[in-house]
Design a protein around this nucleic acid. Structure first.
Length: 301
DNA sequence: ATCCTGCTGC
DNA sequence: GCAGCGGGAT
């Protein structure tokens, strides 16, 4: 039975990465001492598929306005969507508002610490639940984001890119190299993610400054090219329903925050030339709860 | 397997 | 231009 900190066959990544992180970590708001669990939850929502540089200013505005879940719960969902601005995937703003309501009503206003309780929150999946448990509360959990999957694929497995995501497999792979000590595990989660974000990047990895080149299976094999199946190429954004939804929502965000006024269908027609696609986009926003329809037109929830 | 936003680094 | 962003839900 293996009681060591990491699997015997796994390269010893923890020590050099934690060491590297201690002097190379970016100075980011959620890494400040005393940063709240609520702040961590908000930041992780914003960081779901949105780059760090775009998140930081929105996060600071958000936490100044809504420093606690209870404060956000008292505002309307539409205010959350407005404060989200153009971060993208605005359903996240709605889900985060729902989180605030649930946390206020069922968790005494405190962000829950247990992974199962976090997973039960709307918009919180395998990544976000464990990121909050690990980073906000210091508990030992494997955190797996797109960066970590890539670093494991390269350094541990020796592939240029990770295979298709599989929560069970990816969490197990991370658990296998996670230090046993909770504080070290927390640091390692952050460190390996940071390495993927700034050194072991998807397009142009900077292997010349990497702290784990001696333990990198991909390097050891001579940087073989990607052999697996390419993931389906994402459809063009220009002309997509996504773009139309974004244009409609941008118009709705310009309405006064009291949610008393609306935009008529004919007014919204100015944002897109094709009526069928416009109606589909509007219907989708209504179905998602991002827009509400009244007799006079549409507004934020 | 697909959908969901907006932006940027290459 | 286009892949890829500290994902999640369906």
């Amino acid at each position: 039975m293996n009681t060591s900190a990491a699997g015997d066959t796994a390269p010893q990544l923890a020590a050099p990465l934690i060491d590297w992180f201690a002097t190379n970590a970016r100075d980011l708001p959620w890494r400040r001492p005393g940063f709240s669990a609520w702040g961590t939850l908000v930041s992780e929502f914003m960081l779901q598929q949105t780059p760090v540089a775009r998140v930081v200013p929105r996060l600071e505005e958000w936490l100044e306005r809504w420093p606690t879940p209870a404060a956000l719960a008292e505002s309307s969902p539409g205010d959350a969507v407005r404060a989200w601005q153009s971060l993208g995937y605005p359903r996240r703003a709605l889900w985060l508002h729902s989180c605030a309501v649930v946390i206020t009503e069922r968790h005494g206003g405190e962000v829950p610490r247990a992974v199962d309780d976090l997973l039960a929150l709307p918009g919180v999946g395998d990544y976000t639940a464990r990121a909050v448990a690990a980073f906000a509360f210091g508990d030992r959990h494997p955190v797996v984001d797109t960066n970590i999957r890539r670093v494991i694929a390269r350094s541990v497995i020796g592939d240029a890119e990770p295979g298709p995501p599989s929560a069970r497999r990816d969490l197990a792979a991370m658990l296998d190299i996670l230090p046993h000590d909770p504080a070290a595990a927390r640091a390692f989660n952050a460190a390996i993610m940071e390495l993927g974000a700034v050194v072991c990047t998807a397009r142009a990895p900077r292997c010349e400054v990497c702290p784990i080149t001696d333990n990198c299976a991909w390097r050891g094999l001579g940087y073989p090219g990607f052999a697996g199946k390419r993931k389906a190429t994402q459809k063009k954004y220009e002309g997509s329903d996504r773009q139309v939804r974004g244009l409609v929502l941008a118009q709705l965000r310009t309405l006064p925050a009291d949610n008393a006024s609306t935009l008529s269908r004919s007014r919204l027609a100015s944002v897109w030339h094709e009526p069928t696609q416009l109606d589909r986009a509007i219907a989708g926003l209504v179905a998602d709860g991002l827009a509400v329809e009244s007799l006079s037109g549409f507004r934020l929830p």
